[in-house]
Amino acid sequence: MINKWTSELKNAVKKLQINYSLDNSTIINDDDLKFGIIQNLHNVSEENNMLIKPKIPWYEESSEKKQVKFYFDLAILKKSIFNLEFRNATMNNKGYYYNDISLAIMLKFAKPNFNLSEIGEDLNKLKLFSIQTANDAEKQKPVLVIG
């Protein structure tokens, strides 16, 4: 399933490339890139059991307080097992615990004069994610999309 999702993500990015080549005003920032990917993935999400969510938090593994370390721009999770519950009823806090296959996606829209050093922070986040999920590497896949 993770390979199927990766293939669908590649197809979504290819569609965006084609649209951008026809009209470069379709993507002018990271949010446009994110929206375009979500829009293209939405067409295949139901048949592939995909739940596509922006701004998914990643928590520091060693933190007792479960502090958010960073946010992924997009995440693709298995819709059939995703469960959202109230974590703390007194604070009206929603929360979820997810431990199954996922694509963890960082996005970067490359503007004119783009420099590879601009993705250093994103690469560090994906490296941390890879290290902390190494035991489940067949289920968790970090992805960097540069548009």
Rank of each mutant, 00 (worst) to 15 (best):
M1L: 08
K4I: 15
W5Q: 03
T6D: 07
S7G: 02
K10I: 10
N11A: 12
Q17I: 01
Q17E: 02
N19C: 08
Y20L: 11
I27L: 03
I27N: 01
D31P: 03
L33G: 01
L41E: 09
L41D: 10
H42R: 08
H42A: 11
V44H: 01
L51W: 01
L51A: 06
I52A: 02
E61L: 06
S62W: 13
K66A: 05
K66H: 11
K69A: 13
A75R: 05
L77G: 00
K79Y: 05
S80M: 09
F82I: 03
F82R: 02
L84M: 14
N88E: 10
A89D: 14
N92P: 04
K94G: 04
Y98T: 01
S102F: 00
L103R: 00
P112I: 12
P112K: 15
N113Y: 06
N113I: 04
F114Y: 14
N115K: 15
N115Q: 13
L116T: 13
S117F: 02
I119Y: 00
I119V: 14
D122M: 06
L123G: 08
L123R: 12
L123Q: 13
K127W: 12
S130N: 11
I131G: 05
I131H: 10
I131F: 07
A134G: 07
D136H: 11
A137N: 14
Q140N: 15
Q140C: 11
I146E: 03
I146H: 04
